[in-house]
Design a binder for these strands. Structure first.
Lengths: 339, 339
DNA sequence: CTGTTAGCGCCTTCAT
DNA sequence: ATGAAGGCGCTAACAG
């Protein structure tokens, strides 16, 4: 239960002034090798541990960044945070975690707290029901990078995957398999990734001369339950879709469950394409065709850019990482029946 | 890009001393209502944000706890952290996240960093290949609670689920379905949860008069790939098991994949029971029978106990939360062929 | 009820 | 190459 050892204790033990100890501990010039050795030895012996609070207070650098995501229990965000954490630790940055649960109020509160914590910078997956928090964040001067989502009308830095491309690739694939009635069970449209995947979906339809049928597009699906519920409705219709493109692998899971209950085999009676390439996707009974996001790259890049901002760069970086379609077994050529 | 507003700025603006401002801001007694109102107003107007570093330095309370888990990308730990974060924020505690990746060295480093950060307490899922870090942590006087795992020979506080019970329930279920050859594809035995699930497995066999066949027990499976690999070996045998109990739902996913490749139908030819009740478990083509852990309760309890420790309690709390078996469709009565 | 003073642990001038 | 002094922003005595 030792009281904390301070730099003064080390100084006393080594027989130097606090200043010299500080210089020795921080690899500053103008310290003789022997002195440094003695200081380090004393520090080690006493179990000295620098107080980051004091250091941060003095230097205005906390070596800590805030990471705010929408749902850490979602394996996609889990993987993102894992990548971010690893990249951050490589630069001796610690991470303060915030989980918004897609709740705007919580986002607001968490950002305030992190500003109080004097983090060096922020990585944020915004809830996007409003943008006031992010605008305020800009005004605060705190360096930040949006992660995985971005605002069309805000000139902030961001790192995201190319959702337009993802939506296009998935839809194009289904079109090329001969599908004409391709349902899109999408997420909430205020979220940029959902909005842009929808753009990709539309672009693919257009590119191949198909018309968009509004009845085949459903929004606001996030969970497996959502996917299940919507798919039940969609599949019970007489002119049901022959393919479903889902906002996430979880939503796809719900679709698959609904298909089974409707007596529809996958992929023979219904093609399904997911999104995220979550780690269970290839383990499903019918391995899921899905859009793969290079998550590690997202993590690394976002940290890299955030560090640039922290170091004073004022060029705005807006990065879209390309995705790729992973074709497995949940999609197949459409069976012959017209529309 | 405003410079930070300090308590002095607020004091000047409100026409009071820093002390009065501090008292007003912290709801301390002996401040007249009007004064308080004026201070609050000035603070709001200037956009004052308390500096947590200064506060922590002064008061020795950072309102921050460290949370160290093995793999945040694993939805189980993701859910745990989500619960913990929520419970923590309710008490205005922030969370510094550490991810060990089951790497002991990283655990050591992360704990050191968090001690430097002067967190108020620590929640740790230990790697358990060694226990020196945890012993050192005890000696440091930092309050901490182990989360999900514990050491048999260390008298530390912990909150975990009852893994012996979980192992027993899963095995018992399979026995009652008539299975005699029940394989157990377990995790690494240095991890307490794996060790205790094995105890449960043994206890169930014993209880029902079955003998343990060492060839049916495999360790060190963590990922889906591990499960797949081990299951391939196990299932290719002539006297293959009729049931598999897996360390996690992910491992079970690998087992299922292997079974398919071996032409074995689930549950008719092979029963499979998983562990964790991960959110995809019920969405599988054959919904997975698995052991459910009340994760939210784990999170809430661990925060509660950690707060007790932080507040000076020195009673040791070792809590095992009961689990329950969720029976779905991946297990069935054994087909008639002897052993 | 309010103000003054000191100091948490560290780093940054500025001397020596 | 080393030391002394000051101050980062805040809260805890202690006065008044």
């Amino acid at each position: 239960m030792n009281q904390h050892v301070t730099i003064r204790d080390v100084a006393a033990a080594a027989g130097f002034s606090v200043n010299t100890v500080s210089r020795a501990l921080n690899d500053k010039p103008d310290v003789s090798p022997e002195t440094k050795a003695r200081v380090l030895e004393a520090a080690r012996r006493l179990g000295y541990r620098p107080n980051k609070l004091a250091r941060g207070l003095r230097s205005n650098k906390t070596q800590t960044i805030g990471v705010i995501v929408a749902d850490i229990a979602n394996p996609f965000f889990g993987a993102v945070v894992k990548g971010v954490e690893e990249a951050a630790r490589e630069h001796d940055l610690s991470i303060i975690l915030g989980n918004t649960n897609e709740d705007y109020e919580k986002e607001e509160k968490v950002i305030q707290t992190m500003l109080s914590e004097r983090v060096d910078g922020l990585l944020v997956t915004p809830v996007q029901t409003k943008n006031a928090t992010i605008i305020k964040l800009e005004e605060s001067g705190m360096p930040f990078v949006l992660l995985g989502r971005h605002f069309k009308d805000l000139e902030t830095d961001y790192v995201a995957s190319d959702d337009v491309q993802g939506g296009f690739l998935a839809t194009e694939r289904l079109i090329k398999l001969g599908h004409r009635k391709i349902a899109f069970i999408n997420g909430p449209l205020h979220v940029s990734s959902a909005k842009e995947r929808f753009q990709g979906y539309k672009a693919a339809l257009e590119r191949y001369g198909l018309v968009l049928k509004p009845t085949l597009v459903k929004n606001d699906a996030i969970t497996m339950e959502d996917g299940y519920r919507v798919a039940r409705l969609l599949l019970s219709h007489t002119s049901r879709p022959t393919a479903v493109f889902a906002y996430s692998d979880f939503v796809a899971l719900g679709v698959i469950e609904a298909a089974h209950e409707c007596g529809l085999a996958i992929p023979d009676d219904l093609s399904v394409v997911g999104y995220d390439d979550t780690n269970f996707a290839r383990g499903l009974a019918v391995p899921l065709t899905t859009v793969h996001i290079p998550i590690d790259e997202l993590g690394k890049l976002s940290i890299e850019i955030l560090r640039e901002k922290i170091n004073g760069s004022n060029v705005t970086r807006q990065v879209r990482v390309p995705v790729k379609l992973v074709i497995r077994k949940s999609d197949a050529e459409v069976h012959a029946f017209g529309d």
